[in-house]
Amino acid sequence: MSEAATDDEVLAAYPNTRIDQDNVEHYRGRLERRLLVNRCAECRLWHQPPRAVCPRCWSSDVRATEVSGRGTVALHTVLHLAAPSAGVAGGGGYPLAAVDLVEQDGLRFTAPIVDMPEPRIGDDVELTWITRDGSPVPAFRPAGAA
């Protein structure tokens, strides 16, 4: 594997996102198509969105850790009038879901969904990757679609 992307490379790859020191490792992971979620190295609790301190034990030893990408749909919508974003066609339906990840009860990750014309809460999904404006973006598709 090539060397990890620099901060400047990560910032350049995701110009529309507020990337800071608390979430940059997650976006660095995207460039390697690895979905990273913050996990406490002491008490092992996962949390979202990325923060510098574990919300349970207050340890600052929080590490962006790869998840399996498997889970179930908890929330879903289709955006028809989303804010203008580079690489997203305006006006078209943009399906988006929050997925309960298998790693921990209630741990959710929000991402676009693909190949799911009629998603339902509880549907089993798995991670896939799409490319938007030249950069990898995590997405979910029906489990076992590969």
Binding site: T17, A74, H76, T77, A83, S85, P112, R120
Partner: peptide, 26 residues
Amino acid sequence: NVLASDPDTFASPVGYAPWAGRYLEQ
């Protein structure tokens, strides 16, 4: 109360839509 420039988020007023959908489905 504007929408985020990153579309892949329920943060911002977008969050009410998926919860409205969950209400109907649940």
